[in-house]
Nucleic acid binder design. Structure first.
Length: 422
RNA sequence: GGAGGAUUCGCAUAGCGGCCGAGUGCGCACGCUUGGAAAGCGUGUAUAGGGAAACCUAUCGAGGGUUCAAAUCCCUCAUCCUCCGCCA
């Protein structure tokens, strides 16, 4: 949610941001109009209420005929107050509905355009030359089978498309990745968290996942709860309706959880393997900090993501995601894309977003220092999303016979230097 | 799933339908006192909205209702605690 005061004073900035995202510019003017109506309705209600409060007090002390007269008066006033109150809450509700539709302001440094208009910030590492190594790389599905690590056929049998089993060294690899991720997060000052993955509508709504992203969310209708698509949701909502002391900031959490995604509208996209699945595990970084520190924190999150990929010895590139492809809460987003040899392409493995005060305002999270309470900023970033990391590791570190070398950083967690054939 | 009890200012509690945005204790802040500290004394101590300001309005788990007037009465829901049932 955008600060309504900011919007009142800088409508052009908000209009430009909406335009950059390819979203409704008209919405800004609708909000300005209804905000004026809202304030008028509030004033009217408050004036009447004040009158009523005064009158009510005099009723209490009055006696006899005087009291009867006052009561009649008060009765008509009460009806007026009721009407004004109804009008007020109606307009307030309508204002909120519109305000919630408005996306976060774009960072002025974010590239403008659609999905294809990202800016590549850097390349790290060099894609391996398999021709030079003298063999054709196998894809992760084939490697997963040879190693007894991934079983997509039985996954489909039991749970439908985009489902899979991680077995044997596949499962061990997940544990190793998670342990390595948590250990580095601890080193960087994060508090490890295992959050709930089943959350209520307020948490989902507050984090902004019931807007444009709603169709990708699993909903358990019977109990009115949702399965989270990322632990960003329970981590952000953890401090919903709270006021945090300034000296506690920045607050950094590393959440490990399963993530559930409907993947609606992706028919035919990444149908092979475990690049795009309905359920996967992920370690997510989440920060609450002062707004003025958000940019620096965003850079830190990106650096920690890069450190992870580097430790996995995987070539990657960093992109600055274009305005049209940002989530509604993000002011700016960086994706890290790992090199996938059999696709001859860089594919997204992690992503970090700066949500400035947008998400915190929706969730009613503030911080307090000596000057008072203020909005705070939230940021999130993937430390490791298991399936895609497994894909990257298997494909990049494979040998001609189908065995796979284990990155040095993971060896202590696996007690292995190499994954042998099953 | 069933039966009870609870939910008030950071914490603990008081609270009669009008004198309650709300008392008390603790905690915290500032001041006095003191050689210094403790004790003692005094003052202050929520959040949001509207307004240039004085100030006004709202909030006693949430939402409805009754009433001129609700922390206080009624209804629904949520959460927590105890007991019973079931269960990893």
């Amino acid at each position: 949610m955008i600060d309504i005061k900011f919007l009142r004073e800088n409508p052009d900035v908000v209009r430009a941001s909406q335009k950059g995202r390819g979203e409704s510019v008209e919405l800004v003017d609708q909000i300005i109009a209804i905000d004026e109506k809202k304030r008028a309705a509030i004033s009217e209600f408050e004036a009447l209420r004040q009158e009523q409060n005064t009158l009510s007090k005099s009723v209490g002390s009055a006696k006899g005929d005087e009291k009867t007269a006052l009561l009649a008066n008060a009765k008509t006033l009460a009806d007026k107050v009721k009407a004004a109150d109804a009008k007020r809450s109606e307009v307030e509700e309508a204002t909120k509905v519109l305000l919630l539709q408005l996306s976060n302001l774009l960072d002025t440094d974010a590239p403008i355009g659609g999905e294809e208009d990202f800016v590549t910030i850097e390349h790290v590492g060099t894609p391996r030359d398999f021709a030079k190594d003298g063999f054709e790389p196998k894809d992760h599905v084939e490697l997963g089978k040879l190693l007894g690590a991934i079983d997509t056929e039985r996954g489909a049998k039991v749970a439908g498309s985009r489902s899979y089993y991680l077995t044997g060294i596949g499962a061990l690899l997940e544990f190793a990745l998670v342990n390595y991720a948590i250990q580095s997060a601890l080193k960087n000052g994060f508090t490890p968290v295992i959050p709930p993955v089943l959350v209520n509508p307020a948490a989902m709504e507050g984090t902004g996942f019931l807007g444009q992203a709603a169709e990708n969310v699993y909903r358990i209708e019977r109990d009115d709860v949702y399965l989270v698509g990322t632990s960003e949701v329970p981590l952000a909502a953890m401090h919903m309706d709270e006021i945090l002391p300034a000296e506690k900031l920045p607050l950094r959490y590393a959440g490990y959880s399963s993530c559930f995604r409907r993947e609606a509208g992706t028919y035919g996209k990444d149908t092979r393997g475990i690049i795009r699945v309905h359920q996967f595990d992920k370690v997510e970084m989440f920060t609450f900090c002062k707004p003025e520190d958000a940019k620096a924190e965003h850079a830190r999150l990106l650096q920690w993501e890069k450190d992870f990929l580097t430790a996995m010895e995987i070539p990657f590139r960093v992109i600055d995601v274009a305005s049209g492809d940002l989530g509604s809460s993000a002011t700016r987003k960086f994706d890290i894309e790992a090199w996938i040899p059999t696709q001859g392409a860089y594919r997204e493995v992690t992503s970090t977003s700066n949500c400035t005060e947008f998400q915190a305002r929706r969730l009613n999270i503030r911080y307090k220092d000596s000057e008072g309470t203020k909005a705070l900023a939230t940021l999130n970033g993937t430390l490791v999303a298991i399936p895609r990391m497994i894909v990257a590791i298997l494909e990049n570190h494979q040998n001609s016979d189908g065995t796979v070398n284990v990155p040095a950083a993971l060896q202590p967690f696996l007690g292995l230097k190499k994954f042998e054939l099953a």
